[in-house]
């Protein structure tokens, strides 16, 4: 009996070593924000064509690009999802490993919302107020002190009298990067003392988030944040627009500078906290792994990322019509991006 099992095991091992080649499905890695969209496109692609549905892994933008840039070959992914643009350093790492031609496809926008329970009032915040509420150090009487604000109305008497408690993503998340860039940096510019700073000191002042309980890192699970908001009506949560859209009966997005985060406001660019989402394709794999071109054609088709497309149903904010046409051409023509522009 044991000898039999051993031989089966040996055969299994040998077989596995032999089958490492040949891959017929597209592999996608990357951002958890883009994941709902690329999986939907993958599923539709699998249903509509004879190609198998691509396999999508949610690794986070940074982790995904790292895998993507590991090199060319079947063992590496073909497509990377990113909730921010690829960084210069990442493009360099790619080039060093032989990944030279990359097609950059902007698929649409995502709004970042600051939401609270529907049981509470809808608030109207400004980036400056959010910065003052969440920064680690804020200027007071000409010098930087540890953030003294405990309640929102400490910052501005017009704000509600409730404790500052914001649940948000951890530093590893692309959503956090975007939040820092679009809210904290902007708010920082509106405070004269921090706006006057320069270099690393400014970066530290603008981007360091308080750690005394005002901001709670709630992990990558946005559903969990939604549930916590439902339980605690004083708390705010930070997450992508698609979670707000799916849970609109429980939570509401706060207005930022007077604009509420709804589909039209984000699409038109009126809502200030929105970011573009990208998909990067490894050109060297086109033609080697079957179906990459057809998949990108499906992903960028009007039925997918158009205004009434299935990706819009999932919460993707579509590109303006002209841009969408350009993106479609880039994606189907596999025009490599100019990395010197990064």
């Amino acid at each position: 009996m044991n000898r039999f099992l051993l031989s089966v095991a040996a055969v299994a091992l040998l077989a596995s070593a032999g089958s490492a080649a040949a891959r017929d499905q597209i592999r996608i890695v990357g951002s958890s924000t883009v994941y709902p969209f690329s999986t939907t496109a993958a599923e539709q692609f699998g249903n509509k064509t004879d190609f198998p549905a691509p396999v999508v892994e949610s690794t986070g933008t940074g982790g995904g690009l790292k895998l993507f840039c590991q090199g060319v070959g079947e063992g590496t992914p073909d497509i990377a999802d990113a909730s921010r643009r690829i960084k210069d350093s990442e493009a360099e790492a790619c080039a060093k490993n032989g990944v030279e031609d990359i097609t950059e496809v902007k698929i649409g926008f995502d709004g970042i919302v600051i939401a609270n329970s529907r049981k509470a009032e809808q608030d109207d915040l400004t980036q400056k107020q959010i910065f003052l509420a969440l920064a680690k150090d804020v200027p007071q009487d000409g010098k930087m002190v540890a953030n003294p604000y405990r309640r929102w109305n400490d910052i501005d008497p017009s704000l509600p009298d409730k404790k500052i408690e914001v649940l948000g993503p951890p530093p590893t998340s692309g959503t956090r990067d975007a939040f820092v860039e679009l809210v904290m940096d902007k708010g920082c510019e509106e405070v004269p003392e921090t706006a006057a700073m320069e270099g690393d000191a400014k970066k530290a002042a603008c981007r360091t988030i308080r750690e005394d309980g005002g901001y709670v890192e709630a992990g990558e699970n946005d559903n969990l944040i939604v549930q916590k908001l439902e339980a605690n009506k004083d708390a705010f949560g930070i997450f992508g627009y698609s979670y707000l859209e799916q849970n609109q009966d429980m939570i509401q997005g706060s207005k930022i500078a007077g604009v509420a985060p709804d589909f039209d406001a984000i699409a038109s660019g009126k809502y200030p906290v929105s970011r573009p989402l990208f998909v990067y394709v490894k050109n060297a794999h086109v033609g080697v792994i079957p179906g990459i071109k057809a998949f990108m054609a499906e992903f960028t088709s009007d039925a997918a990322m158009g205004e009434y497309g299935y990706l819009a149903d999932k919460g993707l904010i579509p590109l303006p019509e002209n841009d969408a046409e350009k993106v479609r051409q880039t994606a189907t023509g596999m025009t490599p991006m100019d990395t010197s522009s990064l």
Partner: peptide, 17 residues
């Protein structure tokens, strides 16, 4: 090892995703 992924089709051998 990449098994936390969106996979639509059930694997037909232990070598499929």
């Amino acid at each position: 090892i990449g098994m936390v992924a969106f996979v639509v089709d059930a694997p037909s051998t232990p070598f499929d995703p």
